[in-house]
């Protein structure tokens, strides 16, 4: 009787350890799935914010052509230097970038949030618009941020100009780029005018 008892107990223990082993293996496999899932879940917000705040991937636009961006069609119409200005640091050259934007979606205050026009050169340096240089512009010319809140309607053609100050050595390779909140991490990079 006692022998039978011992046997059944050891068989039970064997069965229990088998189930335990099975569950232990399942738990380990679950870690393989859960750990990456936790990393993805916790970093999702930060990655989204990072991608939404930075101009990372360029979409090149050929000179003279327009690109649909932030609900509207953007065309770079002019990129030139302004010479003969006084009171600037030695070696500094003012640069003007002119765009014509045909409004598609008039909800620009949302689509163009964080609108940033900037210049990049061959070595990767970036210039944002300056307040040091102020040149008089025609009344219908806006900057990107003011255009976003101008209340323009679908089909309107907006003239946008941004002014920069860059060193002489960068002039040969600068290109104009535009980023808006609704399109990030993508941004437009315009080819230089053919001279």
């Amino acid at each position: 009787m006692q022998a039978v008892d011992t046997m059944s107990r050891s068989r039970m223990a064997e069965g229990r350890s088998g189930t335990e082993r099975k569950w232990r293996r399942r738990a380990l496999w679950a870690l393989v799935v859960l750990l990456p899932a936790v990393i993805v879940e916790t970093s999702y917000g930060s990655v989204r914010t990072f991608l939404g705040n930075n101009d990372l991937i360029a979409r090149d636009v050929a000179w003279g052509s327009a690109a649909h961006f932030g609900g509207s069609d953007w065309q770079l119409t002019d990129l030139r230097t302004a010479l003969g200005m006084e009171g600037l640091p030695a070696n500094a050259v003012p640069v003007l970038a002119d765009f014509t934007v045909t409004v598609g979606d008039p909800d620009m205050r949302n689509l163009w949030v964080g609108c940033k026009v900037f210049l990049t050169d061959a070595s990767g340096r970036q210039w944002t618009p300056t307040a040091t240089v102020s040149l008089r512009a025609p009344a219908d010319v806006m900057i990107c941020a003011s255009a976003a809140f101008s209340g323009a309607k679908k089909g309107d053609r907006l003239k946008i100009r941004e002014t920069f100050m860059v060193p002489k050595d960068a002039i040969a390779t600068i290109r104009v780029a535009v980023g808006v909140g609704s399109e990030r991490p993508y941004y437009l990079r315009f080819q230089r005018p053919e001279s």
Binding site: N91, A92, Q126, W127, T130, T132, M165, V166, P167, A170
Partner: peptide, 9 residues
Amino acid sequence: FSLEPGLPR
């Protein structure tokens, strides 16, 4: 002070 690359002040 606003600063631009390549233009020390």
